[in-house]
Amino acid sequence: MDEWVPVDLIHLSDGRDVSLVLRTVERHEARRAQVRAECLIATDFAKARLQTHIWLDHLEEWEEALRRLSAGHDASWPRGSRGLELYFHPHESGWLSISVHDPDRLTVALGLAPTAEWIVEHEANLQRLRDACGES
């Protein structure tokens, strides 16, 4: 059996103090609609680790959010979630404002300047997760 490797659906960082990572924490089980994940948030003033799930039926929404962000528009994901929700606001300067909201545990805002290729990298992350979950 192949060795399982975590998949980062989201990995944004300024390379120093600020980062947001949404990562799977276990292999996806067939016939399950979700995969266990963790959301890691780091800033110069706070660090958080939130246990969550990535619902496979929300992956198309993430793809659409990436399209919106690529066009310079705001995006949230997943929309209408009762759990972890992420809000993205791109600025013309290249700066990205992000709000992480978990209604039971935490709301935090952070900002960073992602690499110029961050959208393409996240589209590749999305495909890696789909492949790992048999959703291709």
Rank of each mutant, 00 (worst) to 15 (best):
H91C: 05
G134L: 09
E85C: 10
L50C: 06
G15W: 00
L56T: 10
F88T: 01
H122M: 11
R128H: 08
R36K: 14
E123Q: 13
E64L: 12
E3G: 04
I98S: 02
R130M: 06
S70L: 06
A113V: 13
R16P: 00
E117Q: 11
S19H: 14
P90D: 07
A48K: 04
S97R: 15
S19Q: 12
E92W: 00
Q51V: 03
H91K: 06
D8R: 13
G134R: 10
A48D: 03
V18W: 10
R79G: 12
H91S: 08
H101F: 06
E26C: 09
P6G: 14
Q127Y: 00
G15S: 11
P114C: 12
A30S: 08
R31Q: 06
L50R: 08
W62E: 07
L110W: 03
A48L: 06
E60D: 15
L110Q: 07
W77G: 05
D104T: 04
V120Q: 11
E121K: 05
E26P: 01
G72D: 08
I10S: 08
I98L: 14
W4N: 11
L106Y: 01
G83Y: 07
V35L: 13
C39P: 03
R105Y: 04
G94E: 08
D17S: 12
P6S: 14
T115V: 03
L40R: 13
R16D: 00
E63F: 03
D131H: 09
L129P: 00
E123Y: 02
E61K: 12
V35K: 03
D57P: 01
G80R: 05
G80D: 13
W55H: 13
L20I: 01
P6H: 12
E26Q: 14
I54V: 13
A46H: 09
A30F: 03
A113G: 03
S97G: 05
N125M: 02
